[in-house]
Nucleic acid binder design. Structure first.
Lengths: 242, 242
DNA sequence: TATTGTTTTCTTACACCGCAAGAGTTGTCA
DNA sequence: TGACAACTCTTGCGGTGTAAGAAAACAATA
């Protein structure tokens, strides 16, 4: 009795599996992702996925990698104009992308990110800055800082929204509960001061970029000047540690 | 045959359980933490812990809370001097603390942080800034930005170090592998330019604080001036959108 | 001391997880 | 038709969080 136990081929691909995984965590959250459930979503038994992806860790890495590949176009849309504008647009697009995939955000934040896609993205950014006259070390500092700021901010933003799984829904307790122990916070929550997360993001981003631009400009001036004066000047920005 | 199956009381406490959990993840990593193993480390059966902590999610929350309580003293050591110095010292201490507890860092980053300890910390910071004349909304922006920057940076830093569990050890592939596809990165990895993570942290932190300080100063000036000129000025920093 | 009641600990059980090993089916090509 | 590769499934193992409740340790009282 050769009962047909294996389904006819489904035309699966490593890429399809990873895309389905991204879609799955976007809908059900990261904690809900398991081989069996993802397999079910793909019309296939759980263990089948191991034919395309060697382990769950590899699946998560692949998801991050794929997300970066898919978003690469949006992240560096039109690299023209001064580098500050390019980097600002990049950060804004990155934040948008991260907030669109909050589950992927926690994966991205937790997992080390030295993958080809992330390196390519970084390389692309460096090229923009270098073409605008920014030294290599400074370009790396700027991009690393902006990415890390955006990531940290996005993490806080998705943490605020209580679509977190596992803990109590935590309603708007804040607006009422403090008042004595947290006078300033109580006031902030009452009036809404300083609670616009998006505005804080843009503001700090602007300050960060303007600060770096000013420092680089100063370094360039100082460097040019020192060629004449030959006086002992602070080293030019590359190692201008605290 | 009343064989003694339960051990004599161990004097356990919710606090002791949480402290042991922190010590455990500090040593073995977050993924290794389980009730049974933590129980074994405490000389007790795994289910016993449920008498002190209602769930694993609650345990993780408790660990974050406890860590903040324990570190509160270090984080705001000597709140004297201009607010920029206080906040800088806070960020430096926070980074130090996070790097000392890399496993806790991922918990802290993933889990929403509106707990009493974190609110108290924030309130304390706001008080410092407010006492130095910073408006409430701006104080929140500064503190939120600094915390998120520090968190994002620390995440990247522990991600660089390959003590990550589950993936391949990933040796120093970078120094050799690119060269053609990532010319700038290859150069950076070869010469070491822009790779000093700690220096980048301090540099960006300094730029961030200086930028905020300058903007607040400008807002104050603009506000004072506008009292005389009555001219149409940009609104003073609280709603100075992007 | 014996009894009761509370606090703490353990046992058992269940559903789920990632994954190793291998058997089975399906399609392709000689 | 046969052989072979590609793909899918089954089984099984040790691990997880946790619900439910029995059993032991202790404290206090009779």
């Amino acid at each position: 009795m050769p009962s047909r136990r294996t389904r006819p081929r489904t035309g699966l691909t490593r890429e399809k599996v990873i895309d389905a995984a991204i879609a799955y965590v976007d809908e059900h959250g990261l904690a809900a992702l398991s081989n069996r459930k993802l397999g079910a979503a793909l019309g296939v038994e759980g263990m089948t996925l191991y034919y395309y992806v060697p382990s769950k860790a590899a699946l998560l890495d692949g998801m991050v990698e794929r997300l970066l590949e898919l978003s690469a176009g949006d992240l560096f849309a039109a690299p023209s104009g001064p580098w500050t504008d390019v980097v600002r647009d990049f950060a804004v697009a990155l934040r948008r992308m991260l907030l669109d995939h909050p589950a992927m955000l926690t994966v991205l934040a937790t997992r080390p990110a030295a993958t080809p896609a992330s390196l390519a993205l970084l390389e692309r950014g460096i090229t923009v800055l270098r073409d605008d006259g920014v030294p290599l070390a400074d370009a790396l500092d700027v991009l690393n800082s902006v990415v890390r700021w955006t990531l940290g901010h996005a993490l806080a933003e998705v943490g605020e929204t209580p679509h977190h799984e596992g803990t109590e829904p935590q309603p708007e307790e804040f607006a009422a509960l403090d008042r004595d122990t947290y006078p300033h916070l109580a006031r902030a929550f009452a009036t809404g001061e300083g609670l616009d997360s998006e505005q804080c993001f843009h503001r700090t981003l602007r300050i960060l970029l303007a600060g770096y631009a000013a420092e680089l400009e100063r370094a360039k001036q100082g460097l040019a000047e020192s060629e004449f004066t030959k006086g002992p000047h602070p080293r030019p920005a590359g190692s201008a540690g605290q």
